[in-house]
Each structure stands twice: as structure tokens, then as C-alpha cells.
């Protein structure tokens, strides 16, 4: 097939020129020996959007910000109990969300390290405000223990993962 408007060859199955929309003429190709390489008909395919992020990380981030705000601006109960409890629940959710696939084990290790750092920051706020510190301390111990277990169990992988995240 050919388009006489554009003076070009077209694929054998073409009825319309993709350049100008003119009707294809049933004439022999000038460029001999080239076969058509068709694309799929995408009008039938479903539009695939970007794969969504796993919810674990987003929930953890939002809760961490909320816990920080409660710790700084809330009353003694909110600061000492509610803030670490929120952080603990979201951290657990994050760990289990991360642990659903074996390949995500290392990310669980990193999230526990992050929880350890966040709970340490929370502990400082709690001590400065002179409210009950033991729930936050418990959170620190939990995250630290989880991180330590992963480091002992998978030392090479954890070392590599930390090196990757911290490299500069």
C-alpha cells in the first residue's frame, strides 16, 4: 500500500495514511522486501495507571507526624501514652506490611531503625515535659530489639542495606 499524498509506502494492512489521513492506494511498495511489524490494538486494553505505593509507608509517615504534634502540644496523657501508642501501632503495621514479601525484610529492618530514632526523639520530648516516660521507653526497646534481631540474623544484608541508604 502507498500514500500518494505523502509519497511513502505503508504497511500491507493500512487503509489510511498515518501521516495525513488520506486513503491508502493499493500500489506496489517502492521499498521492496520490508515486512509489516504491527503493534497491538490498544483500544481494547484497560488504561493501566501507575502502580500504587504500598499503604504501610504512607500510614507510618502520617502517624509519625501526628504523634510528634501530640507529644509537643498535647497534655501529659497524650504526650506520655497516646503519642508512643500511635507510633507503636503504625510501626507494627509498617513492619507487617513490609514483611509480606521475603524481599522486603530489609525494609522492615530499616523501618525499625526509623522507629528507634523517632521514639528516641519522642523520649527526649517526654523527659523535657516531665511526663510518664516508660511507654516511650518501651517503644524504644521494642524497635531496638527488632532491629538488633535482624542485624544478628542477617548481618551481611543489613550491612549492605544500611550502606546503600547512608552512602553519600
Amino acid at each position: 500500500m502507498r500514500c500518494n499524498e505523502c509519497n511513502v509506502d505503508l504497511g500491507e494492512s493500512y487503509h489510511i495514511c498515518p501521516l495525513c489521513g488520506a486513503k491508502a492506494a493499493d500500489e506496489p511498495a517502492h521499498l521492496a522486501g520490508v515486512e509489516e511489524a504491527p503493534y497491538p490494538d490498544v483500544t481494547k486494553s484497560v488504561e493501566q495507571l501507575w502502580d500504587p505505593d504500598r499503604p504501610g509507608k504512607a500510614v507510618f509517615r502520617v502517624t509519625a507526624v501526628l504523634a510528634a504534634a501530640l507529644a509537643v502540644f498535647g497534655g501529659p496523657f497524650t504526650c506520655g501514652f497516646l503519642a508512643p501508642a500511635l507510633l507503636l501501632i503504625s510501626a507494627l503495621y509498617y513492619f507487617f506490611s513490609a514483611l509480606r514479601e521475603p524481599g522486603r525484610l530489609l525494609h522492615a529492618g530499616l523501618s525499625s531503625l526509623l522507629t528507634l530514632l523517632l521514639s528516641a526523639a519522642l523520649l527526649i520530648v517526654v523527659l523535657v515535659r516531665h511526663v510518664a516516660a516508660w511507654p516511650t521507653l518501651l517503644l524504644c526497646v521494642f524497635a531496638g530489639a527488632f532491629f538488633a534481631v535482624l542485624c544478628v540474623e542477617y548481618p551481611e544484608r543489613m550491612r549492605a542495606q544500611l550502606a546503600a541508604v547512608l552512602h553519600h
Binding site: 500514500c3 505523502c6 509519497n7 511513502v8 509506502d9 505503508l10 504497511g11 494492512s13 493500512y14 487503509h15 489510511i16 495514511c17 498515518p18 501521516l19 495525513c20 511498495a29 517502492h30 521499498l31 520490508v34 509489516e36 511489524a37 504491527p38 503493534y39 490498544v42
Partner: peptide, 24 residues
């Protein structure tokens, strides 16, 4: 632009075969 490019190349004496992912 596509039309200009391939029509120009054809006018230069180059045999051009056009194929597209959108075709009828």
C-alpha cells in the same frame, strides 16, 4: 511535524515506508 519530516525525506529521493502504532 511527522508529515513534514517524512514528506521531505521522500522528496529527497529516499524511499520511505511509514508504520505507526495508531493505524487503520
Amino acid at each position: 511535524k511527522q508529515q513534514f519530516i517524512f514528506r521531505f525525506l521522500a522528496s529527497e529521493g529516499i524511499d520511505v515506508r511509514v508504520e505507526s502504532n495508531f493505524f487503520e
